[in-house]
Simulated assay, not measured.
Amino acid sequence: MTQSLDEAIAAVASYTIDTDMENEVWQKGVAINGLLATDRDDCLEAARALVDRSVETQDSNGQLSYGPSYPIEVFQHGKEYDAHWEIDERKAMNTNNTTSIGHGVLEFYRRTGDERYLEAARGEYENLQSVERTEDGGIPHHVPELSGVKGLWIDSVYMMCPFFARYGAAADEPEAVDEAARQLIVHAKHLQDPHTGLFRHIWHEQPNSYPQSTFWARGNGWIQAAIVDVLEFLPDDHPDREELVEIFRDVASAVVERQDDSGMWYNIVDDPHTPLESSGTLMYTYAFERALELGIIEDEKYERAARDAMDVAIGLVDDEGAVRRVAGPPGGPGAPLTSTSYGQGFFLLAASQFTDGQ
């Protein structure tokens, strides 16, 4: 190990602050969360600048940062993405990627009391309430009227659910908190494999199918990170709390048993022929530590797994502060390894769990 954790955090933070994220959406949302987790003055200033710009560029539908933008190029990593529907930029319009920025918007509402942040969050919330849903109430990942399908993607739970819970608490709208739990449960119903406890990537309602069915590392990270973040705002007596805890325990148990001796996890967690990948590794680290703090898991194997992962992750940071070996969007099999804003964000989120302030 060539640098300490504090040195790695400083380098990653500096690189992230200097990254141009003007044209990013969900990636920027994760980066904002990571910057906020450091509680460093320079990171808070940078996060607020990103949030303020996203509010300034909120579109007429209430979606932050110019609204959904999903260039067709991101779908060209694997033929499974273009084998099931005709992808173009219009049809790929996303329902909830911009909501990832809503976490940061609500954090600055908490810090400042400035009502423009709450109004911006309300726009995001109301937009998602208008989306046509699956028969059991799931909010699709893409606009059904354009894509021609109602598909649930595991990515959505991190974009939407912590935001719903936090918005409900901030706006005193308990139905939004209920929505956070409902979406997690509906997504688990369709995407969690009953045999392994792991989550698949994409489910389509019609026809009932899995166009991308692998146990993708970042996908299993999305669900774990989403649940621990939702539980922070979910009342202890909420009727869905125990079900969410059980979902978390099932997937965490399945994931922890598949950690490689290096401390990392494979891009497809049950396939050692895929590369060891950093974003999923960092997401599990963050989620395990948060779950231990919340008391929803207690076994020391999770603490050991998280510490082993964090130790190896420090070495993923290059001399400029870029976190390497991140599977590029949209993830899944064959995604190239690179550096991304969300990889930076999840490094900072995970690392913050091991600093003195945590």
Rank of each mutant, 00 (worst) to 15 (best):
T2A: 12
T2C: 02
E7L: 09
A13I: 00
M21F: 01
G29V: 06
G29R: 06
A31D: 10
I32Q: 01
L35W: 10
A37Y: 10
D39T: 08
R40P: 00
D41T: 07
R48T: 05
D52C: 03
R53K: 05
G62T: 11
Q63I: 01
Y66W: 08
G67W: 05
F75Q: 04
A83N: 04
I87F: 02
K91W: 04
M93N: 08
N94F: 09
H103T: 03
G104W: 04
G104I: 05
V105C: 04
R111H: 08
R116P: 06
G123F: 09
Y125T: 07
L128A: 11
Q129E: 15
V131C: 06
E135S: 12
I139Q: 08
P140S: 03
V143Q: 04
G151N: 10
W153H: 04
W153C: 01
V157T: 10
V157C: 05
M159F: 09
M160K: 12
P162W: 04
F163R: 07
Y167A: 04
D172N: 15
E173C: 02
E175K: 11
E175G: 05
A176M: 01
V177L: 06
E179L: 07
I185D: 03
H187W: 03
F199T: 02
H204C: 07
Q206E: 14
N208C: 08
S209R: 15
Y210S: 10
S213W: 15
R218A: 14
A225H: 11
V230W: 12
D236L: 14
D237Y: 15
P239H: 14
E242S: 14
V245Y: 12
A252K: 13
V255G: 08
D260N: 12
N267Y: 14
V269H: 13
L276D: 07
Y284R: 06
Y284N: 10
T285Q: 13
T285L: 11
R290H: 14
E293C: 05
L294C: 15
D299K: 15
D311N: 12
G315W: 11
V323S: 06
A327P: 08
A327H: 01
P329F: 06
G331V: 02
T338K: 09
T340W: 07
Q344R: 07
A350H: 13
